[in-house]
Nucleic acid binder design. Structure first.
Lengths: 151, 151
DNA sequence: CACGCGTTGTTGATGTTTCAACATTCGGCG
DNA sequence: CGCCGAATGTTGAAACATCAACAACGCGTG
């Protein structure tokens, strides 16, 4: 398209709100988690995702997709979490290229200690302000947006 | 609260979707803008906000609030944008502590060159997938969330 | 088997953000 | 006026993200 159409008033208003949320929400989540645990939200999500996996263990690529991050970013993050003793790299039994990230007992303990405060913050920032209808509608919208984000 | 309640299934599903969007959307916006202009989305927002201000000029603190960022982050960003010749610091006439950020002609030209591609990306990621009703509902939700994020 | 290509994951350099510490100025109050 | 607390910005170091380059392995084909 040579002359892409601009956003109309409704779209622009929505976009400005969304842009603000994209800026402020991660900052708020990071702040709370860093105060309580010393790690940012992206790192917390890695621990949380692993804790729900069988054997608390996942392939790097699968973990990256589940968290919605890059392999490179994940690799750096795992290195950092490994140095704190919360994660451990393991060789993949079926694929010699592969690495698995394994959540240690110490990592699980840290996660469980951090979870209540984090959930409270998610409530304070989001669900305290929304009705059940709001949540259903919001979820319908996110379901429409996620496919394009995953490519 | 000593035992904060966990998220129910609807809330947890919504939260996982939101977390994915918070991770993927900024990454997608950054990627497009960096390819086209070499600057991340947070920097683009600074230029865009300034372009709509009288004299294309704003106090640092006001600009930080408008964009939804930190004064420190803004200061670093302005330094970087200034080195590219797209911004200029000016002394504030009424307050000797103050600094004003002024968008230069070169900065405006860069912004106007980047805008079509950026808008197209915002459309591709968001508005192409939503009906007018979706947008209205989404905006109603964001309106409920923003106050808590602003404190 | 051997070649080539796609996948998997890491690394190092560079750019950006965060946090704490600091300098400067404003504004109110004794 | 002179002092003190608050507000305004900047800076440097450390943490984190991005990007391109790279090594190692899997898999299919000839």
């Amino acid at each position: 398209m040579s002359t892409p159409r601009w956003l109309d008033d409704d779209e622009m208003g929505a976009w400005l709100d969304i842009a603000q949320i994209l800026m402020l929400m991660p900052a708020a989540l990071d702040r709370q988690l860093r105060e309580d645990t010393g790690i940012p939200h992206a790192y917390y999500q890695i621990l949380a995702t692993l804790s729900a996996a069988p054997d608390r263990c996942m392939r790097m690529t699968d973990l990256a997709k589940a968290v919605g991050t890059t392999l490179s970013r994940l690799s750096h993050a795992v290195t950092s979490l490994e140095q704190r003793g919360w994660l451990q790299r393991r060789a993949c039994p079926t694929d010699k290229r592969g690495q698995m990230a394994h959540l240690t007992d110490a990592g699980l303990a840290t996660l469980e200690a951090a979870a209540p405060g984090h959930v409270a913050e998610v409530r304070r920032l989001i669900f305290d302000h929304l009705t059940a209808d709001d949540i259903a509608q919001l979820r319908a919208v996110t379901a429409k947006l996620l496919p394009a984000l995953h490519q």
